[in-house]
Design a protein around this nucleic acid. Sequence first.
RNA 1: GGUCCCAUCGUCUAGCCCGGUCUAGGACGUGGCCCUCUCAAGGCUAAAACACGGGUUCGAAUCCCGUUGGGACCGCCA
Length: 470
Amino acid sequence: MIRVRFAPSPTGHLHIGGARTALFNYLYARHNNGKFILRIEDTDRTRSTEEYIEAIIKGMKWLKLEWDEGPFRQTDRFDVYRSYVDKLLKEGKAYYCCCTPEELEQRRKEALAQGKSPKYDGRCRNLQGQGAKGQGAVRFKMPQEGQTVVDDLIRGKVVFENDQLDDLIIMRSDGTPTYNFTVVVDDVDMKITHVIRGDDHLNNTPKQIHIYKALGYEIPLFAHLPMILGSDKTRLSKRHGATSVMAYQEMGYLPDALVNYLVRLGWSCGDQEVFTREELIKHFSFENVGKSSGVFNPEKLLWLNSQYIIKSNPDELVGLVIPFLESAGIIRKGQDIDRKWLSKAIKTLQERAKTLVELANSLRYYIAEDVQYDEKAKTKFLNEKSMPYLKEVKEGIESISDFSALELEKVFKSIVEKHGIKLGALAQPVRVAMTGGTESPGIFEVLEVLGKEKTLRRLDKALKIIKGEN
RNA sequence: GGUCCCAUCGUCUAGCCCGGUCUAGGACGUGGCCCUCUCAAGGCUAAAACACGGGUUCGAAUCCCGUUGGGACCGCCA
């Protein structure tokens, strides 16, 4: 049974990079009928918050990255870590270190200034019981010779010289455990078979391997994912724009579109760009995960989002767009709206909106009582020249009983033929009268969605404006 | 500074493991054309890359070495 985990630290929101790590774990688990575990690594009590735990869970749920076990929290397991530390201490595989953080910082700086490696110098390592027992931080005794090989599923064998490794702190002087230790203990306890995480952990891996060995446990398989970079090729951060997953929800992105974008950043499946969740699960494999880091490209994400909006069922879009209509002030919060009609309106706009925010805004002229005219469009199309045509459209419309796009087209066509003009000469003035602007879905569709009553009212208003009555 | 990782169009990538089929394929973005009542969507099309230098070989994007460039890590953060 394959068991993987996503183990974020709640010191911030779920961000793009974390989401992709979670996604790859999720896909690997689902592809292999394994288990996906969520574990919150909150041992840094000064920086972890409940709020961020909630935010991470919210982000995971929004992306529909369902986990099978957890969320486990490391702060619930301090006694477990403590017992493992005691075991190592007893076996002489760890020792107390009474160097203060200030001293260490000082020595690190000096080493760096002299061009030396800033690793811990092992000062307390050989004190052999002379050091203050039971106080200070606990360090793990790393082997100082030989090599450690990380056999990575993505990178192959990576060799580290053990003399490069330093005795890392596994328990702080306040008794709380640290990351490199808890991660091993938890992965063992939770029977994790594959550790799938960011590339930034590759250098930690040999240290963790030694902890597994000291504890006498089997070493899991590792897969280190390439990093996601910003446009300047440095690690993706706020400087590059939105990095929080939920910011994309607010900007009107569909979770499936984000997932699709993220998975293609580092993974490929031939020439295919758009995938259903089922296809992703079916095809996902580390064989097709690249080694090099990738630059986050918001334009491609936007394109994918537009593709997902086009593919969506308009009825589903109704529920998704309503919050955006509310926040744009197009409808009042909790206002009743005819969902069937809204669905029809959305259908005409789907291929024109790249985000739900755009979709909501483009719905404005359908929903609002009055049109807001674009000044340029108004002067160009609502004038003496178009007035007679507008009148004829009005008369034609009044005469039909079936107010459908099909019938409307007939009305327009007969006027066009009668005057020997192009359809555009008729459609554009009507478009401005209906929407206030020069861009919209096909004019017949717009009229049909608007309905006879609203159409006639807007035609009247446009005619009044031309006559200067408004 | 040390260690580790990486290197194909501006960007994401296919190809690389198993050298010839690569005048290097696809996608986003950009330009042009078509469609057309506008805007989109869609279709067609163009420009655009094997970082560099050495090997190995009849032949290298593909294998080896080096250089350069980029990234990550070196915390009583995770």
